[in-house]
Design a protein around this nucleic acid. Structure first.
Lengths: 304, 304
DNA sequence: CTGAAAGCGCTTACAG
DNA sequence: CTGAAAGCGCTTACAG
């Protein structure tokens, strides 16, 4: 039983008799032997690992994308390593560097918070796929995002179809995704009114009858603030959010929201990462959002 | 400029002149050189990495603990690798094995979902710290959890002090933490009534006036279901949750909830992991929960 | 500070 | 299938 035989058997290489394979597996089991991963990686030059960089763990949007990535990675025999930079730019860069130094075969950045330079630098060192909407994506990197313009259109068209004419847009931080939604909103509404934060909107007292929030958290905040002021939703105010997270189902009235196919986005991102590792090139993908109607915009809507 | 000098300089070892250090750093920068981490780990036998095993990403409870771990790890010069097994037992075991195979210096399992055997096997292979409440924790492993009995006592005492006499307990899956809360609840209430799930409670129509939910998600679900049935909270029904997550602040009325010092728990877990790596032994830590009163139990409570 | 040597634990050919 | 050899890219002594 040579060293090479054991190595081949343990890695499941062809050309090892069933008898040896079994004997070796049994012995390894008995001895608790496991190949040293660092030595394997050192010699093979590949890690079998893909690094996932997250902005924010505590957000279902990110989580479901990660699940999609993990499913696809597992199927391809890859391990997934998660790292998260909260919303701190320098922390995010630090974690990105950490993943690259670790030697992952590819990085999937699930964030819109990295600037062009940082992405450029990362893409030069490792196959890179971005999920989300940063300022720009370097050539040669993969990219998956939803069609924000279309999502905004769905939201606004829904409110217009309900007879609302004075519709506001509420955003938090102004990032590319939010900006795209706002631009689409502007092009569809006669007198666009934008507010930064739920409080600003409600304090304005402008008599607007509907609001499109750029994410569910803001949407939920609007519902809470409206309730605190004794406003009835959707009668006094109709609200539409974005992301269709669990939150949209837990609040009352439940929140009408634009859905992104998160699992599919993760799976596609992993497929692009594999393509980059293999052929060196990857496609970009823009997925279509859909609208999920609930009680925050239509009284008779199902509770979900 | 020998290989050894470069190695020492790059690792910031003492005994390298400032001049060499600078020249070497500059050259490395120019060439884009970075030491191969696998080779370093292979030869040093240490990874500088701690693996964190999560049950569920999309839960603020877990997220804040991770933040605490990361802060402490960063301070100690350690990197953090996250891995998550959703709520699937075999997936969780798989990920745990993956972390160990990767060669992390310690594993922090932020979950109560691993059974005694799995924990025992893991602890035999790597310094292990558990955050949460599994069935049992192996000797030699670190452990951090909150005092569930005390948390339940805070919740029930609060409701009793408001004059409620018929208080229900609602749980989801029955795990040790939930069981401990239930046992404490039982010992404090005259006629304990337990329900599995929010729907079961509300369908019962028993005229109970208050409910203690074993987590915020269930609490939020109870609020939603109560609203759907036209019940007024807290007048018709008072609700208390557990975990004091963002959800408790976003729903209306806002949810009274038991808080665990999550960040501190993460920090303590990392400290235990370092102690295990160093001296080989670690303490157990049980932290005290506190009660955060909001509108779901007291009408006049601040909105938060 | 320098430089050559040994070795970390594997995989990869290669001759048998 | 076997076994010896070389090498992956580093760090660790060690003699100068």
């Amino acid at each position: 039983m040579s060293k090479s035989l054991v190595s081949a058997a343990l890695r499941g290489e062809a050309g090892v008799s069933a008898a040896s394979r079994e004997r070796i597996a049994a012995a390894a089991d008995r001895l608790g032997y496991r190949a040293n991963g660092w030595a394997q990686r050192l010699v093979s030059g590949r890690s079998g690992l893909v690094g996932v960089l997250l902005t924010d763990l505590h957000n279902e949007y990110h989580t479901d994308i990660v699940n999609g990535i993990e499913d696809a990675a597992h199927e391809a025999g890859f391990g997934v390593i998660l790292s998260h930079g909260r919303r701190d730019r320098s922390l995010l860069l630090d974690r990105l560097q950490g993943l690259i130094d670790l030697g992952v075969d590819a990085v999937i950045a699930v964030t819109g918070h990295l600037d062009a330079d940082a992405l450029e630098a990362a893409a030069a060192r490792v196959p890179l796929v971005v999920v989300g909407r940063p300022e720009s994506v370097p050539d040669g990197a993969g990219w998956v995002r939803n069609n924000d313009e279309e999502g905004a259109r769905l939201a606004v068209a829904h409110l217009l179809s309900l007879g609302h004419e004075r519709i506001a847009f509420v955003h938090g931080s102004v990032r590319p995704a939010s900006r795209a939604r706002r631009d689409a909103y502007r092009s569809l509404v006669m007198e666009p009114r934008e507010f930064s934060g739920a409080a600003a909107f409600l304090a304005s007292g402008t008599g607007l009858t509907a609001v499109f929030a750029t994410n569910d958290r803001l949407g939920a905040q609007l519902l809470a603030d409206a309730a605190d002021r004794g406003m009835r939703v959707p009668d006094d105010l109709a609200v539409v959010g974005y992301d269709n997270t669990e939150l949209s189902r837990l609040v009352r009235p439940a929140l009408t929201s634009v859905d992104q196919p998160r699992g599919a986005m993760g799976t596609a991102a992993m497929a692009q990462a594999l393509a980059l590792v293999g052929s060196g090139s990857a496609e970009h993908l823009i997925v279509a959002p859909t609208l999920v109607v609930r009680g925050s915009s239509v009284r008779a809507a199902p509770l979900d």
